[in-house]
Simulated scan of single mutants.
Amino acid sequence: MGSCRFTMSSLATLHCLAFAQGFSNNERQAAARALLRHDAHIDGTHYQTKTPGGLHPSYIGFHPTPAQQPNSGRALTHKELIDATLQDVFDAIAMQDRLDGGISLLVRCPGSEAGLTTSPEQIGVDLYITPRELQEVPQPVGGDIAVLVQSFSQEFAVPHLQRFTKRCNIENIKPPKPCKSLCCCFLND
């Protein structure tokens, strides 16, 4: 996926194309997100930057929200796109676990503003674990996950968010405010 394809206006255009007719608004948005993220992991742009600050060109802070076109259906806002994309990730993990009987754990910290005094308790973390594992052995898994999330937040997330904030400042982009709650997603298995 080239960086020029990932824009809010591209998403709006995909949403309105003829291929989308006959599908619900949610189905059209899911198809557009799938096309936009196709091969993003293997496209070689993990370290690509167009600006001195080091933010990936797909960073949503660079792209304005497109104007709603009449009769186009409802388009996603920035926040809705971010939330829907995370749900796509959870859905993909759940499907992978169902296909091969595996177990998955995802610990993710959304990009947000962080200062030198930011502590792990001040940041948000998205968490996914295969639901059947948590249901079968909730106490040991829950305790182990808490230790893992604390370590992840302290050793990886806080330093990353501090670097992210520095990059945003160089580019004169206002980073999102931190979410201070743990978001757990346990899909039905």
Rank of each mutant, 00 (worst) to 15 (best):
I123D: 04
A84F: 08
L86A: 08
Y59D: 02
H15I: 01
E136P: 04
E80V: 01
Q154T: 08
E171F: 03
L134D: 09
D189W: 11
I173C: 02
A75R: 08
V141R: 07
L127F: 07
G22P: 01
M95Y: 13
S72T: 04
P178Q: 04
L14E: 05
Y128D: 02
S119T: 10
V158S: 00
Q122D: 07
C183H: 15
V89P: 11
G115C: 00
Q21I: 03
L116E: 12
Y47C: 13
D43M: 04
I173L: 13
D39G: 05
V89A: 15
I42C: 07
L182N: 05
T13Y: 11
K180S: 05
L86T: 09
G73C: 03
V137H: 07
R33Y: 04
C168P: 04
H78P: 06
E80S: 09
H160R: 06
R108W: 12
P138V: 08
C109E: 10
F62Y: 15
D88N: 04
H38Y: 14
S24L: 01
H78T: 14
Q135Y: 13
I170A: 09
G143P: 06
L99K: 09
V141D: 01
T49H: 12
A114F: 00
A146E: 15
P120H: 00
V125N: 03
P178C: 05
I60V: 00
L11Q: 06
A32N: 00
V149H: 08
A157Y: 10
L99I: 05
P176G: 11
L161D: 03
M1V: 13
Y47T: 15
D43H: 07
C109R: 09
T85M: 07
R167Q: 14
C4P: 13
P176R: 10
T49G: 09
L187P: 03
R5Q: 12
Y59M: 11
L187V: 14
A20G: 13
I129P: 02
A32K: 01
E121K: 11
I173E: 01
A34E: 05
L17C: 14
A12W: 00
A67C: 09
L99F: 04
L161H: 05
P159M: 13
S10E: 05
Q162D: 03
Y128G: 01
I60S: 05
P66S: 03
D39P: 03
G22L: 00
C16E: 11
G44E: 06
A67W: 05
I173D: 00
S3K: 13
M95G: 07
L99E: 09
I93W: 02
P140T: 12
G44R: 10
D126N: 14
S151E: 08
I145F: 11
H46P: 09
G54Q: 06
D126P: 02
T85K: 06
T77R: 10
G111R: 07
A34Q: 06
E136F: 11
L148I: 09
S153Q: 11
Q122I: 04
C109T: 15
D88C: 04
L161V: 10
T45Q: 11
Q48N: 02
G115P: 02
P159R: 12
Q21A: 10
G142K: 12
V158Q: 00
P178I: 01
